[in-house]
Simulated assay, not measured.
Amino acid sequence: MSDSGAPESPEVPFRKKTVSFVRRSGRMSDAQERAYADLASTYLLDIPRDIASMSVHPSAQFIPAAAYGREAPLTVEIGSGQGHAIVHAAQQNPDADFLAVEVFRAGLARTMLDADKAGVTNLRLAEANAPEVLAKLLPPASVSEVWVFFPDPWHKVRHNKRRLIQPEFTPVIAESLRDGGLLRMATDWEEYALQMREVLDASDQFERAFEGEWAERFEGRVLTAFERKGQRAGRDIRDLTYRRRPRV
Rank of each mutant, 00 (worst) to 15 (best):
S4L: 05
A6W: 01
A6T: 04
A6P: 01
P7A: 13
R15I: 12
F21G: 03
G26I: 04
A31Q: 06
A31Y: 00
Q32D: 06
E33V: 12
Y36T: 02
A37V: 00
A40Y: 01
A52S: 13
P58N: 05
Q61C: 12
I63T: 14
P64T: 07
P64E: 10
A66D: 12
A67T: 12
Y68R: 04
L74E: 00
V76H: 02
I78L: 15
G83H: 06
I86D: 04
I86Q: 05
A89S: 14
N93D: 10
N93Y: 10
F98S: 10
K117Q: 15
T121V: 12
K136T: 15
A141F: 03
V143G: 05
F149T: 09
D152S: 02
H155V: 09
L164G: 09
I165N: 02
P167T: 06
T170E: 11
V172N: 05
I173F: 00
L183E: 01
L183M: 14
L183G: 07
M185F: 14
A193L: 10
A193V: 11
M196D: 00
E198L: 09
E198R: 14
V199Y: 11
E211Y: 10
W214D: 08
A215L: 05
R217A: 14
E219N: 11
V222T: 13
F226N: 01
K229G: 04
A233I: 05
G234L: 10
L240W: 03
R243Y: 08
R247Q: 09
